[in-house]
Structures are given as structure tokens and as C-alpha cells.
Simulated scan of single mutants.
Amino acid sequence: MGFKVAAEGAERQFTARVTAHVPVDGGTKEERFKARYRVLSTDHLENFELGSSQGTTDFLRAVIVELFELVDDNNNPVAYNDDVRDQVIIDPVARTALIRGYFDNIGRGRKGN
């Protein structure tokens, strides 16, 4: 089977498990959630200054379609919306995990494939 060339204007999306390494006394603990991303073309990626805080925020707003498995301090589910997305992407731990989740998954196949 060959590589499918996306039609002009077509959007690719994927869902990935994201692992955040949350600092705790004496180390870190892993907290996982899922993110649905849209794949941006290299031309579109050039619009984002990923070396700046605002550029990274703009990038994450552009690529995140939805976040799943989010909970509050009492482990109650948190429904996704744009405000929740913005709250998650300003958290430096989640931000790092989301960036890693995007680039790790568009750059190679999943382990075991």
C-alpha cells in the first residue's frame, strides 16, 4: 500500500496518549491523558515561532482538537472546551507533554508497528 496524498484542504488528525511528568518531592510522577491533534503542513508550521512562549501557545491552540481524560483535584472528569484547553496549555508540565506528543507521533510510527 502506498502513501496517501492528502487532497488539498484535507485535514489529517490523530489521537495520542500524552504523558506528563509532574514534579513531586523527590522526583516526578506520571499523569496521562489523551490529545486529539490536527496535523499541520510544514508551510503552516513556519507561521509559529516555537522558540517563544506566545508562538508555542498559538501552535498548541492550532493543533489541539480535543483533550480527553482530564480530571480536577477530586478526580472528577473535566469536560473539554477552549477555556480548559487554554488552562492546560499554560501549565508548563502539560505544555511540554503536549508538544512532545505532537512531534513524537508525526515523526515516526508507534512502537510495535
Rank of each mutant, 00 (worst) to 15 (best):
M1A: 14
M1S: 14
K4M: 11
K4W: 03
K4A: 07
A6T: 00
A7V: 08
A7Q: 12
G9M: 01
A10I: 00
R12T: 01
R12Y: 00
Q13W: 04
Q13Y: 07
R17F: 03
R17Y: 03
V18A: 09
V18M: 06
A20M: 10
H21A: 14
H21P: 00
V22M: 14
V24Q: 12
V24T: 13
G26I: 07
G26D: 05
G27P: 13
G27W: 01
K29W: 00
K29F: 00
F33G: 11
A35F: 02
R38K: 15
V39C: 01
T42H: 12
T42F: 11
H44N: 09
L45M: 15
N47Y: 08
F48P: 08
E49F: 08
E49L: 13
L50S: 11
L50V: 08
G51L: 06
G51A: 12
S52L: 10
S53R: 14
G55Q: 03
T56F: 00
T57S: 10
L60Q: 03
V63W: 00
V63T: 05
L67N: 06
F68C: 04
F68N: 11
V71P: 05
V71D: 09
D72T: 11
N76K: 15
N76P: 10
P77T: 11
A79F: 12
Y80H: 15
D82T: 14
V84H: 10
R85T: 09
R85Y: 03
Q87V: 10
I89Y: 03
I90Q: 15
I90A: 11
I90V: 15
P92N: 08
R95M: 09
L98W: 05
L98M: 09
R100I: 03
R100L: 07
F103R: 09
D104N: 15
N105Q: 11
G109H: 14
K111D: 06
N113I: 13
